[in-house]
Design a protein around this nucleic acid. Structure first.
Length: 473
RNA sequence: GGCCACGUGGCGGAGUGGUUACGUAGCGGACUGCAAAUCCGCGUACCCCGGUUCAAUUCCGGGCGUGGCCUCCA
C-alpha cells in the first residue's frame, strides 16, 4: 500500500508522490526559543518525527531531508531578554536567552525519542549570507523587484493584492478576511492584509543592514524566515510542509505568498500538513488557568516514552485532550511491551498492519491496535510476534530503551533508598516462606506507603515466588 | 461578526452505508495465603431534528455544543 497524506491545500487525503524519491524533502516550523517548550509545542515535534521515521523507512534513511528551524529573532525573545537580564546589553541578553532555551528544547525532545532533523537552521543565520544561498534579504529584494512588495516608512510590506490566489491554504478570500478584520491597520499599508517582511529596529535592538535601499538598519518579519530557510535548504518547491493548525493563517499562508511570488512557482510545498490543537484536562492551556504544562515538568513525573505514547494515541489531526489518565495508561502498556520484548533484537520483521495504518495518513491509534494484537500473541508465547512488536513499536519511536533502563526510571521528586526497598522485599519473602502473613502484609503496606507497588510471580522453572516492584501510580 | 474543525460505549480513541475496532475502567472466572500483576470471558456506543436510501453512527440540510483562526500562540 502506498503512503497517503491529508493535504490542507486540497482538504483531501491523497497518495504521496515525492518530487524525487531519492531526496524526499520536508520542512516543519520549529520553536521560537524564549521559554520552556510546552506540551502543545511537543505535538508537531513528535508527530512529524513519526512521519520522518516513516519516510526513512519507505524511501531509505539517506533519502529524506528534514528541516526544522529554530526561531531566534523575535519580539518575544527581546522582551524576555530585557526582563531576565536587565544588567546586560540587549544583544548579549538575547544570546543568553536563545542559547539556554535552545539547549533546553533539545534535551527535552531528545527525552521524547525525537530524532534530530537533517538540518536545524537558526533564523539569524539566514538573514544575510555570504555563501550565495538564498537568505531573507535577497528574498525581500526579489519580491520588491518583481512587484510583490513595497517599501513604506522603512518597512518592507508584502502586497497581497499582487497575488491572485492569496488565501488558498486557509481557504478564505481577501474580502472575507477584510470583512472580519478587527485590527487597526497601520497607516503606511497599501492594503489592510499586507504583512511585514522587514521592519526598522529601535536603538539597542538586534539589527541588520536593510534590503531594498532602506538606510536604517532593521530586522525581519516573522514569516520570511521560513521562506528563506526552506528555499535555501530544500529548494523553491519541496514535498511536505508541516506545523500546528494555528499556523495555517497567517504564517503558512504568508510563507506560501513570499516563496511562490519570489520564485515564480505554482507551489511552495506540494503537501501541507497540520496537527490539531491540544487541550489540557478538557480546558484550553493557558498560563492564567494554571494548567500550562511544559515538557520539562512533565519529564519529571513521567518517562519520555509515556509522553510520546500518549501523544500518538490520538490521530494527529484530531484535537487532543491531554490528561494524566492517558499517561498512566501509556505507562502500563509500555511496561507490558518492554516485558514481552526484553532482550530481543530490534531488527525483527515489521508488522504489515502497523505499516498500513501509518501509511494511511499516520493513523497511529490504528497502529496501536495492531501492536496490541501482537502483544496478545507475544503474551501467549510467540517469539515472532514479540520481535515484530519490538520492530514495529520502534518505527514509532517507542521501545528505544533496554528494559532495565525503562524499569529504573524514577520520578525526579522521588527520593528512594533502593537498598532498603530490596531488603524489605527480602524480609517479606522470608516472612511469607515462614507463613507469617501478618508480617509480610505489614511490610507490603510499609512499601506501599513509600510509593512502591509489589508484583509477585512464580518462577516456572524453580517454583519459587519472585517479587518485582515499581513506582505506584 | 467572518472563516474552519470537531461531537462515538463510564473514560480514552479508530473506523465504516448493512457484519468484532482497540485500550482502559467495571463485572465474572483462573491463579494467589490475601492482594497486586498476569491469563480467560463479558460491553452492543456513535449530540439533536429532518432528508436521501431496502438500510445511516457513516451521505445531504438545519440546529445545538465544544474548540481553533481572523491579534507575529504549535
Amino acid at each position: 500500500m502506498a503512503l497517503k497524506l491529508y493535504n490542507t491545500l486540497t482538504r483531501q487525503k491523497a497518495e504521496f508522490v515525492p518530487i524525487e524519491p531519492s531526496n524526499v524533502r520536508m520542512y516543519v516550523c520549529g520553536p521560537t526559543v524564549y521559554d520552556y517548550a510546552h506540551i502543545g509545542n511537543a505535538r508537531p515535534v513528535i508527530v512529524f518525527d513519526v512521519l520522518f521515521r516513516l519516510l526513512r523507512h519507505i524511501y531509505g534513511p539517506d533519502h529524506v531531508t528534514y528541516v526544522r528551524n529554530i526561531t531566534d529573532v523575535d519580539d518575544k525573545i527581546n522582551a524576555r531578554a530585557a526582563r531576565d537580564y536587565p544588567g546586560l546589553q540587549l544583544n548579549e541578553a538575547i544570546r543568553k536567552v536563545t542559547e539556554t532555551t535552545e539547549k533546553q528544547f533539545h534535551s527535552d525532545i531528545a527525552a521524547l525519542g525525537v530524532l534530530p532533523p537533517t538540518y536545524e537552521p537558526r533564523a539569524t543565520e539566514f538573514i544575510r549570507r555570504q555563501d550565495g544561498r538564498e537568505d531573507m534579504v535577497s528574498l525581500i529584494d526579489t519580491l520588491v523587484r518583481r512587484g510583490h512588495a513595497y517599501v513604506a516608512e522603512n518597512h518592507v510590506l508584502f502586497d497581497v493584492e499582487s497575488m491572485p490566489d492569496y488565501g488558498r491554504l486557509s481557504n478564505r478570500t481577501l474580502e472575507e478576511m477584510e470583512a472580519g478584520a478587527r485590527v487597526e491597520v497601520a497607516p503606511y499599508k497599501k492594503g489592510p492584509m499586507d504583512f511585514v517582511l522587514w521592519k526598522p529596529s529601535k536603538p539597542g535592538e538586534p539589527a541588520w543592514p536593510s534590503p531594498s535601499g532602506i538606510l536604517v538598519p532593521g530586522r525581519p518579519g516573522w514569516h520570511i524566515e521560513c521562506s528563506a530557510m526552506a528555499g535555501a535548504l530544500l529548494g523553491p518547491v519541496f514535498d511536505i510542509h508541516g506545523g500546528g493548525i494555528d499556523l495555517t493563517f497567517p504564517h503558512h499562508e504568508n510563507e506560501i505568498a513570499q516563496s511562490r511570488c519570489a520564485h515564480g512557482t505554482a507551489a511552495m510545498a506540494n503537501v501541507w500538513m497540520h496537527n490539531g490543537f491540544l487541550q489540557v484536562e478538557g480546558e484550553k492551556m493557558s498560563k492564567s488557568l494554571g494548567n500550562f504544562v511544559t515538557i520539562n515538568e512533565l519529564l519529571k513525573e513521567w518517562p519520555g516514552e509515556c509522553i510520546r505514547f500518549a501523544m500518538l494515541s490520538t490521530h494527529y489531526r484530531q484535537p487532543i485532550n491531554w490528561t494524566e489518565k492517558a499517561l498512566g495508561e501509556a505507562r502500563r502498556t509500555l511496561d507490558h511491551w518492554y516485558e514481552l520484548t526484553e532482550g530481543l533484537p530490534g531488527d525483527g520483521p515489521m508488522c504489515a498492519d502497523v505499516l498500513q495504518a501509518l501509511e494511511d495518513d499516520l493513523n497511529t491509534p490504528q497502529a496501536f491496535a495492531a501492536l496490541h494484537e501482537l502483544r496478545s500473541e507475544a503474551a501467549k508465547g510467540s517469539i515472532g510476534a514479540a520481535r515484530c512488536l519490538k520492530a514495529s513499536a520502534q518505527l514509532l519511536g517507542l521501545l528505544q530503551l533496554e528494559r532495565a533502563a525503562w524499569l529504573s526510571w524514577r520520578p525526579s521528586a522521588m527520593n528512594l533508598d533502593e537498598a532498603r526497598v530490596a531488603s524489605l522485599i527480602d524480609a517479606r519473602l522470608a516472612a511469607r516462606r515462614a507463613k507469617d502473613f501478618k508480617e509480610s502484609d505489614r511490610i507490603r503496606d510499609e512499601l506501599a506507603g513509600m510509593g512502591i507497588a509489589l508484583k509477585d510471580r512464580k518462577n516456572k522453572e524453580t517454583g519459587e515466588i519472585e517479587t518485582t516492584w515499581e513506582v505506584a501510580r
